[in-house]
Simulated assay, not measured.
Amino acid sequence: MPSLRAAVIYSLSVFAQRRPILHRVLDWEDEFFALVTAFLDRQSLANSSATFADTLYGLRRAPYAPSEPSRSLTPREQNATLMFLVGVPYVKAKLEALYNRHRRPTEGLLGLTLRRPLVPQSSTATQQNADQREAGGGSSRWQHRLAQARALGLAAFMRLYPWLHMVQEGLSFSYQLAYLLQASPYFSPTLHILRQHVERASGQQLALADRAKRQQRRQEITGVRSSGNFIVRLVQEGVLRAGYALSDHTRNALILAIFGFKLLEWWYTSAEDKLATEKKLAPPPPPPPPMPAPDGVPLPSDPSLCPLCRQARTNAAMTTVSGYAFCYPCLFNFISQEGCCPVTRIPATIDSVRRLYQST
């Protein structure tokens, strides 16, 4: 569902550039996506006892009863499942937004940015304002007390929410780990509360679900045709058939929308990278190496020889202050005694010696 949410919000953002009225929908994106999720999951649960995400992988939900044959969810179980699937993520998103809105960055140890709620100052300011207003009169004293209670409640929430979030994430991880180790039939706390498990839908189960769906629709259309006058029957039947078509094709349309969103994301990302590559400046040339000092060790005519021992370099090494290469023992002994580069006489230490694993 995160990909679906990103696709929906991105599409609304693009359309809102030409239709400013859609900005109002973006202001209520949590509520809008909750309605979309409720519609999709409601249709999927009613048709195949599975959520919209489960149908993409050929899965279905069934009550967990090892001693009984698998069966579809009852309407009551479908409503309970829908409440958890839509209500819990919505409440979690609202609590997270509330926490992010009332926290502030503070400098911590080693310059790290920590997040701490803005609680003491707000509660103190509320208390001071309440004292001042109570001193001036008692007409709005209950309003000040209400504001103080809200500040205290916000303070408690800001302190408890990180711990609650940690417990929730830890509980979800524990269930997933237990499910992978086959220690539990539930891979999430929600399934455990609902006493449901997810299973692979067989071809026979899918055929039975499709047959039951068609039979229910046939009964609904028959009931509409047998009531009211001709125009009312025609309108009601048209509305039912339009709803059936929307329900049948929404899944495929949303899958295509997700793929289209990913394609557009890749296309524009590639175009931006290409433009950035074309505008990228060439790297500047490296600085010239330090010149040899008059009293330094002269460089040999053959660059493969060590300037100190005048033999082929073994265990090549260099000093970072100059970049000239030597034998590692020669360079180590020279810097230990002289404290400088042999060629340029620039001050150096043992820490500036680096091994070279490929000599050129």
Rank of each mutant, 00 (worst) to 15 (best):
V88L: 13
P89E: 07
P89A: 08
P89S: 10
Y90P: 01
Y90L: 15
Y90S: 04
Y90K: 12
V91L: 14
V91T: 11
V91E: 04
K92Y: 14
K92T: 14
A93D: 08
A93S: 08
A93E: 08
A93T: 08
K94T: 09
K94D: 08
K94I: 12
L95S: 10
L95I: 11
E96H: 12
E96C: 02
E96N: 14
E96I: 05
E96A: 10
A97E: 14
A97D: 14
L98S: 08
L98T: 05
L98Y: 06
L98N: 04
Y99H: 15
Y99T: 07
Y99W: 15
Y99A: 08
N100M: 09
N100V: 06
N100W: 04
R101E: 15
R101K: 13
R101S: 14
R101F: 13
H102P: 03
R103N: 13
R104W: 02
P105D: 06
T106H: 07
T106E: 04
E107A: 03
E107L: 03
E107G: 02
E107I: 02
G108L: 04
G108N: 02
G108H: 04
L109S: 06
L109G: 03
L109A: 09
L109T: 10
G111D: 00
G111E: 00
G111V: 00
G111T: 01
G111N: 01
G111F: 00
L114T: 00
L114N: 00
R115T: 02
R116V: 06
R116E: 04
R116D: 03
P117D: 02
P117G: 07
P117M: 03
P117N: 03
V119R: 06
V119G: 04
P120V: 06
Q121K: 10
S123A: 15
S123M: 13
T124G: 02
T124C: 05
A125I: 07
A125H: 05
Q127T: 14
Q127C: 13
Q128W: 12
N129Y: 10
A130Y: 01
D131S: 11
Q132I: 00
Q132T: 01
Q132Y: 00
R133S: 10
R133F: 03
E134R: 04
A135S: 06
G136C: 03
G136L: 04
G136K: 07
G136Y: 01
G138H: 11
G138D: 09
S139F: 08
S139N: 03
R141S: 13
R141G: 10
R141L: 15
R141T: 13
Q143C: 06
Q143P: 02
Q143K: 10
Q143V: 14
H144A: 15
H144E: 15
H144M: 13
R145V: 12
R145F: 11
L146D: 06
L146Q: 09
L146F: 08
L146N: 11
A147Q: 15
A147I: 11
Q148D: 05
Q148P: 03
R150N: 12
R150I: 09
R150G: 07
A151M: 00
A151L: 01
A151K: 00
A151T: 01
A151D: 01
L152D: 15
L152R: 15
G153D: 07
G153R: 07
